[in-house]
Design a protein around this nucleic acid. Structure first.
Lengths: 213, 213
DNA sequence: CGCGTCATTGATGTGCATCAAGTGGTGTGG
DNA sequence: CCACACCACTTGATGCACATCAATGACGCG
């Protein structure tokens, strides 16, 4: 498809945006940090790549979440960010953040808040990988998702997974078969209902209790 | 460039320091962030605490490392920091960091550098817990220690562990028996030599190869 | 429509946890 | 200074949670 000239599009200098198709990369590990991003719609994963295709998903991001904070301190991104469905982000170039003024002060407030939330999130992840059973990991994952959907005004009990079983498994440090089996098991026990990517949390209390066993 | 600070600035207030005995806590999770710390001598661990005594060591810190960065964004500490041997830190109160001026600019440079190193470190930890075998975890741990000792001018091949097997195990997401067995196994294979807390790396190359298998 | 990806489920294997016993080092109080 | 308690560490025996291998069904997509 021949691209139409972009000259007319930018009427609002305020909101710089970028669209990505499923599988497209927003930024890559090692790249120079140029901007922060806020997810407008869609979802992303961040991947840590290492020698010989070893890879680990370090987080999932949905509407409202900020991406790219890992590069803020080093001025270099630590992970790859990839869209897991068709998505759009709002771009906040470094220049805007660094510039003095009211606008940047307001932004920096947001950035700080997000930064600390993501630090907390990282710690959760460490705890999860370091000391929880497979069952507990999946329960924690579902509870977390549920809360995040709720915070965005969606149902906390009934939602659509944007990521594959393989991606969940990578994030949780498990094999995809294990994840699949656990979904089935939770369903059998009547804690959740699953149909492929659609999940309904039938018994939230018992789900949270899995974490406390 | 070398301009001396203007006027009658407070004459370098002798760096603020604090000493801690083994087991003493420098700061605690949930506490309001008051200062950053740089380890002068000794070593620390950071612990993440959760309901019912579940706990996970998230990092070890030695001379030169900065502590407390986890609280910078949220203005609230995320972890406990505990001395694992008699130690001393240099205290950098928030006020100093926030104050405008050359001194704080220089400090903030350091802080940023440390911040990004620790983000990288966190990612290493995620990779370690999420996708490495027990053997690879211990190898990675030893290689990391070796590099850190080297960076401080100590021998990278011959050093003294400051932490117990149990602490190593917690950090690596393993049981202490497993760690102990792995030490013995590495020793049998002639990769390292161990006598309790003293470790000598006999064959650095083979140790690093464990990671690549 | 046919092919690749995603998912489920079963059979089997194994890496690490768990349980258990014993040694050695260290600090404490008699 | 020794006796004792306590903790760190090692090593063995056993079990289980999860990985691995394999077969099949269900979508979704070009």
């Amino acid at each position: 498809m021949v691209a139409m000239a972009a000259c007319f599009e930018t009427q609002q200098p305020a909101a710089l945006r970028r669209r990505l198709r499923r599988g497209e990369r927003l930024f890559g590990g090692g790249e120079r940090f140029a901007s922060l991003y806020t997810v407008r719609y869609g979802s992303f994963k961040t991947i840590l790549l290492r020698q010989e295709g070893r890879e680990q998903i370090t987080g999932f991001f949905m509407a409202g979440d900020m991406l790219g904070l890992d590069g803020l301190a080093a001025q270099k991104h630590a992970v790859d960010a990839v869209a897991i469905e068709d998505s759009e982000v709002e771009v906040m170039p470094r220049a805007v953040l660094d510039a003095p003024g009211e606008e940047s002060a307001r932004l920096n407030g947001h950035v700080n808040a997000e930064l600390s939330r993501q630090i907390a999130r990282q710690h959760e992840a460490l705890m999860l990988l370091g000391s929880l059973s497979a069952e507990q990991r999946l329960a924690a994952f579902l509870v977390d998702l549920s809360r995040r959907f709720a915070a965005r005004g969606y149902s906390p009990r009934d939602f659509h997974l944007r990521m594959t079983r393989r991606e969940i498994a990578s994030y949780l440090g498990l094999q995809l078969e294990t994840v699949s089996r656990l979904f089935s098991e939770f369903a059998e026990r009547g804690v959740i209902a699953v149909k492929s990517k659609h999940v309904r949390i039938v018994d939230p209390e018992r789900l949270e209790n899995v974490l406390k066993n």
